[in-house]
Design a protein around this nucleic acid. Structure first.
Length: 346
DNA sequence: AGACAGCCAAGGGTCAGCTG
DNA sequence: CAGCTGACCCTTGGCTGTCT
């Protein structure tokens, strides 16, 4: 045993040196084969791969990271995956990363911001895609000390400090509200994340509620914001009960625009429980166009984001930033489309 | 000249062994 | 006992040498 060698389980792992010895080449040649570099004869390559396979050798990513400074890991900051929208987003991102041999590390936005920043320090991951953190992005950017860390945001907001893909819901939302107005709807309300006591707080969140407000004011209509309390679990019947209470107490608007599809589904359930007919009495539209929207009767209208395109673009931006840290800031705007289904057809 | 393969150093964290 | 030193982990990029 060498002077500092320990009886450590790590030492039992098959290394590049073991494979090299068994294959009768040097570790350098094994490394070249594993990386797919040129200047290795087909005969040597075949032998190294065969021996490596027989010995169950796998590349030690920690050691590789030591040399290259690249871990092959991309951090993705997201909301929890019990939100179908984020589950779908992560699915598409994972397809993109896996196709390039990268591994995804999921971090959730309910972690402390300092903890998120710590988890994504440059030595731990090669880059970050931020797809959550609604309302906390500016604070996150302030706390990020390592600005050399490649980072791309997928967000309805735009930034001057980082690369981003902006998802602009305004045109589709405007189209939905115009459809309701044209159909003669008098009382169009917005259902978002917030509390019933302080619904106007949701206007500070991002573009969707403020687009609704702007369109309503432009049309000379009254703004009506209905808040769904985010502290109530998404699968809790209490959300539906709260909405029913609201509609029973205040009467029901004849047009409802929802922050996202899950809320639209809660609203749909509350309305049908109360005996309202959609769209005859209430026109309803959601946002994100999750798969279940078209299987409900009547099929629910929604605003569809081209998720594959968004994820491909985010990954492209991140790769470009990793390759060229001094690149000018990159940004792109994606405009989702309104899917008009029966719930919006008067 | 080009293909192929070996040598060497370096990278950051850990920990055994040495020194005061 | 605390603090310091340096071997070790594993892989790879750059350079160099050998062979056809």
């Amino acid at each position: 045993m060498r002077p500092h060698q320990k009886e450590d389980s790590r030492l039992k792992n098959v290394t590049i040196v073991d494979v090299a010895e068994a294959a009768g080449v040097t570790a350098m040649t094994v490394s070249r084969v594993m990386k797919g570099y040129k200047h290795v004869s087909p005969k040597t390559r075949e032998k190294v791969l065969r021996v490596a396979g027989e010995m169950n050798y796998t590349v030690n990513m920690t050691a590789r990271a030591l040399v290259t400074g690249q871990t092959g890991i991309i951090a993705v900051i997201t909301e929890h995956l019990n939100h179908p929208y984020f589950a779908n987003l992560i699915h598409h991102l994972e397809l993109q990363l896996a196709s390039q041999g990268y591994v995804m590390r999921l971090l959730y936005t309910d972690e402390e911001l300092d903890s998120l920043v710590h988890s994504t320090k440059s030595s731990a991951v090669d880059g970050i895609i931020v797809a959550g953190l609604h309302g906390r992005v500016q604070e996150y950017l302030r706390r990020r000390t390592d600005e050399s860390q490649p980072c791309v945001f997928i967000s309805p907001e735009s930034f001057s400090e980082a690369d981003y893909i902006r998802i602009d819901f305004r045109p589709a939302l405007t189209e939905a509200i115009q459809l309701m107005i044209t159909a003669g709807r008098k009382r169009i309300a917005y259902v978002g994340i917030g509390t019933l006591d302080f619904p106007h707080q949701m206007l500070h969140w991002e573009g969707r509620p403020s687009t609704y407000r702007d369109e309503m004011e432009k049309a000379g209509r009254r703004v009506e914001l209905i808040g769904v309390n985010p502290s109530i679990e998404i699968d809790s019947p209490a959300r539906i009960e709260a909405l029913k209470d609201y509609f029973q107490t205040n009467g029901c608007p004849d047009g409802l625009v929802c922050f996202h599809d899950e809320i639209a589904l809660h609203v749909f359930r509350a309305l049908t429980d109360l005996g309202y007919r959609i769209p005859d009495e209430v026109m309803l539209v959601g946002c994100d166009d999750l798969p279940f929207m078209k299987f409900i009767e009547p099929p629910l209208s929604s605003i569809a984001e081209p998720m594959a395109e968004i994820c491909a673009l985010a990954w492209k931006f991140l790769q470009m930033r990793i390759a060229a840290p001094d690149l000018p800031l990159q940004c792109a705007t994606i405009t989702p489309q309104l899917m008009v289904r029966k719930s919006l057809l008067a």
